[in-house]
Design a binder for these strands. Structure first.
Lengths: 340, 340
DNA sequence: TTTATTTACGAAACCGGTTTCGTACAGGAC
DNA sequence: GTCCTGTACGAAACCGGTTTCGTAAATAAA
């Protein structure tokens, strides 16, 4: 590590201008206390010397950092990639910096990240919780410190703050309904988690649709995915072979769709004739899969954007606190050939 | 914005323990000057009061922030998503924080981001430059301030620092070679940029392969993509209709592959019979496209990881400076049905 | 002309850590 | 007993901004 070049400080500006430090500081922040002429002189020198205020000195004094922390389970998923874009779009516009952390679906890791935030490193937090997360003490503690936090997509219902979600229940209902209408009498539900709010709601929507179609729910039709991709895959193979053809499958998250394509290929099952597939997915390539995948596409960009917008509003508006509310941005179903 | 809860400070610890601030500070950093007994008392209280040192105070004094800035052109591309994972893996291990910025392929935006870094906000920088970037004064200025920077994938050759790249020339050569071997006598090159180093190298590899196969290069076979997706697409349609069947296409970046699938569908051209396609791509779904896409897959995770590892080494090792060298991590070609 | 304001600026405290330097005291060497 | 050394700690400077408060001079009000 080389020693840094010493940056130009506000003190140097003051000395060169024959002004006090406080005057320079106020001039830079365009305070009404300072005359136009002085402001001009200061800004000229700022320009000339390429002065960049030390953000850490400023953050220390003002107790805010213009930085938001974003906690994601992972970033491979195209949902989160798009969400980052949405977040960045408002951060950029509002002059915020974005710190990114990945929990890798681990509660422990998520907890560490959130605990670090208690230090005041970030002004506010956006989070989509880890698959493993089943409690929320870490988040409560953060909120007690008055650090605003908004959830997006993977929320914790019990925490009283703003949550940006999509219509998981309705989307899953619609998806299941679609499969049934297409003639798949038996519908498998590929479950990502048994505890995550989104998973539960999607499962409920699925169940309700079965009920409305007088199909009795069987827990045997819910296939749970763990973190062990290999084991999951062999479970999937076993399940598929045990069933007769003509079943529908609802993949509750994007990452479960491709394994199904693979399994069908391996078992020589035809999509959509033998297996109908619909998946929650934001894959751009969905339309070009073999066959094209029917998807429930979430408004990922908009969700990220909305989450960031709420957070920034909470940070900047004195009389605005994050209400305990759900903002629902609906998903859309795009029917393609994987479901007839 | 609500006023923050006042955090526990090192001063409070000192008062409660009847010690001086400096003693507490040293105890926390496990200084040899402090007795084991005192350290114990201090750490007990730290634990009890849940003391979190203010990172900004620390950064101000020590002049480093344990933060690295990552500048990406975009994050929709799965290459960059995977690269982020690689970067995060070393950041997490080494205790660094990751600030993410998107240039959206704009030079101006990239310049602003880099200029902000002159403030000392980050200890070091990882960057994959924007498509528009054709000069490097902004980066030179940063390097003059002794802020280490390493490029990955989209590098600027003229800047004397470490660059993590893949074997663009060879990969494009191999890809073209493959198309020709498969019987495609005419090969289109879908170009993403005329200035980006990776694009130039890939084009060179393509040309060399043509040359080695005694096919004369025609600039008419290089199709340039702008930022105007619609116009690009209609250009692509026009080009494809103007050619006879049996042409090979090398898409030099991932985002150019799907439009080709779409165009072929629209023009009722069959892949691979009428059009053979190979693309630089890190899409997980490549194997399940219709037909499965032959790809040049870049080691995105490893590249991000290597870039971060070099940067951290430069930050932590006193006698290590980032050499002006290229670290090449080879890509692999995965042959699938889109090229026979 | 006197008093009240306003304008424009400076001194100094402050944010919360880190680091330098000084020192009291204990123990060992001579 | 004197000198030296090492141990364990504290006072204070420092990082580079922001903010409060005070004040001299200029202007307005009475």
């Amino acid at each position: 590590m080389k020693e840094k070049v010493t940056n130009v400080t506000i003190k140097m500006l003051a000395n060169q201008l024959g002004l006090s430090i406080s005057t320079v500081s106020k001039a830079i922040s365009d305070s009404h206390e300072i005359s136009a002429a002085t402001k001009q002189r200061v800004n000229d020198l700022v320009e000339k010397l390429n002065y960049k205020p030390n953000p850490y000195a400023s953050s220390l004094r003002t107790r805010n950092s213009k930085t938001i922390g974003v906690v994601l389970p992972e970033v491979a998923d195209s949902f989160f990639a798009q969400a980052i874009n949405g977040i960045e779009s408002v951060a950029e516009e509002k002059g915020y910096h974005v710190l990114i952390y990945l929990s890798h679906e681990s509660f422990e890791r998520e907890e560490q990240i959130i605990k670090d935030f208690e230090s005041g490193r970030v002004d506010g937090v956006l989070i989509s919780v880890a698959k493993e997360t089943e409690q929320h003490k870490h988040i409560d503690t953060l909120l007690e410190k008055k650090i605003p936090l908004v959830f997006f997509d993977r929320v914790i219902d019990e925490v009283a703050t703003t949550k940006i979600i999509t219509d998981d229940y309705e989307a899953a209902y619609t998806a299941t309904e679609h499969l049934i209408k297409q003639g798949y009498k038996q519908v498998l539900f590929l479950s990502f988690s048994q505890t995550l709010s989104i998973s539960c709601k999607r499962l409920e929507g699925y169940k309700k649709s079965l009920y409305d179609n007088t199909i009795k729910f069987s827990s045997g039709n819910v296939l749970r995915f763990s973190n062990d991709a290999k084991k999951d895959y062999s479970n999937l193979l076993r399940k598929l072979t045990s069933l007769k053809k003509g079943i529908g499958v609802l993949a509750s998250v994007e990452k479960l769709a491709l394994p199904l394509y693979q399994a069908c290929e391996e078992l020589q099952l035809r999509i959509p004739q033998d297996v109908g597939l619909i998946s929650f997915s934001n894959l751009d390539s969905a339309a070009f899969l073999h066959p094209p995948l029917t998807t429930i596409t979430q408004p990922a960009f908009e969700m990220g954007k909305a989450a960031a917008a709420f957070l920034v509003k909470a940070l900047e508006r004195k009389n605005f606190e994050l209400a305990d509310e759900e903002i629902v941005i609906p998903s859309v179903m795009i029917v393609r050939k994987s479901t007839l």
